[in-house]
Design a protein around this nucleic acid. Structure first.
Lengths: 233, 233
DNA sequence: AAGTGGTCTAGACCACTCC
DNA sequence: GAGTGGTCTAGACCACTTA
């Protein structure tokens, strides 16, 4: 006996994972059909389906009608990062959060921002610069472009009381977004805001979001050296 | 009429998403129970369940028995990154991949590596340094520690023919992993390998993997400025 | 043509948790 | 105690793909 009986879909999944780990099925192999596994495990096909669908969601197997379920050769494990409100990120480290709105003006965004947002040439939108602090020390420097016509209430919001980061999370649902990480040398204004020597390496997060077809905001966050984004696989 | 009838669980999900976007339900609100929505949509409860479970997976709602389903105030959208084989990453850019094994020796890892891998003090494991190239230009510099006792065949593998990165993906299933991104100034050996001025900002990826309780490998990848990791939200 | 996964249904029982 | 979501079942039909 293998221990307790296979009761739910999660038990089925564990059994399948065990067979993969133990090389009973090898990369490229075709797994048995749902119906066959269901009869082997003594459960309904829907239960096996739930377990195998989960394996497919995890990227371990590929499923196609008629062709069956195949164990992938190079299981691309995916890392998941939750994109949090900066205030919470700071408070999670047991530090006191504050922020300062350094700049707020309508302006025409540079071409690469206008292009990313899909704005017509020459449209002026809201440009914000914010410094986020942890216990009074610079935590992140934020450079944001925001189309106030795409979010109700954004033109009247007081971003010195609530950071644009947090206001948008609460008030602007979005349907799509892009996120990118990179490393750069700090330019003069970034270095000054973060109180770093000019040219220091900074961690950069670029984020753009849309609501249906309308671009909402494009933001760039600069973090000082030592900052890390972490995740479990 | 709202258009075509709601047929499958994905249509149900779209309808629910529309109501969220249109502020019919607001953050913090309690959504109707599955049974009520099922009767409204004229489908089985399981179909509504599938749609709402998906919303919960996306982090939009929180579901609790008896308490019901609540629209979250700050929907934490998650970004997913697939962790690819470096060769494929390069080839996806239509460049020619190659790699050079610069260093291969048994050695005692520094304390922070030994600690992360959970190794006893003084254990020597395999230390590898590899340069990955795209069309002959430095693409990434890899510094890896590998416990050959944790992976069958690793001691005999020829990592100058197949990179350790790729060999491990194919030959070493893992049950858990940690991933971290950061930015640093390149030290002398990294700058030299990547042909950068010393002190250039480099993008750093740290990855550690375990198979059951055994640590397999800890690797650090350095990428030159301009490299970006991107994802859809 | 036939096999496989994708999904829906109607009903059922249970676990959890709020009242 | 009662309402809610979590899950299983048995059966069914369909979509897709390969043979």
């Amino acid at each position: 006996m293998t221990g307790r009986a296979l009761a739910g879909w999660q038990d089925i999944r564990e059994e399948l994972l065990a067979r993969i780990r133990d090389r009973k099925w090898r990369p490229g192999d075709l797994l048995p059909a749902e119906a066959q596994l269901a009869s082997e495990f003594g459960c309904a096909r829907a239960t096996v389906n739930r377990a195998m669908r989960n394996l497919a969601d995890l990227g371990l197997i590929e499923r196609r009608r008629k062709a069956g379920s195949r164990l992938l050769a190079a299981p691309e494990r995916q890392a998941r990062f939750s994109i949090a409100v900066i205030r919470k990120e700071v408070e999670a480290r047991r530090e006191r959060y504050s922020h300062v709105l350094l700049y707020r003006r309508m302006a025409r965004p540079p071409a690469h921002v206008a292009g990313r947002l899909g704005l017509p040439r020459g449209r002026a939108i809201l440009h914000l610069r914010t410094l986020h602090l942890a216990s009074g020390n610079p935590w992140a420097y934020e450079d944001r472009w925001l189309d106030t016509r795409a979010v109700a209430g954004a033109a009247r919001a007081d971003f010195s009381a609530i950071s644009a980061n947090e206001w948008l999370v609460a008030n602007s649902p979005f349907t799509a977004g892009e996120l990118a990480f990179g490393a750069e040398a700090a330019d003069n204004s970034t270095a000054e805001a973060l109180r770093l020597p000019a040219g220091s390496p900074v961690f950069v997060i670029d984020r753009t979001t849309w609501n249906r077809a309308k671009a909402v905001t494009a933001v760039r966050l600069y973090y000082p050296p030592g900052y890390r984004v972490t995740s479990r696989l």
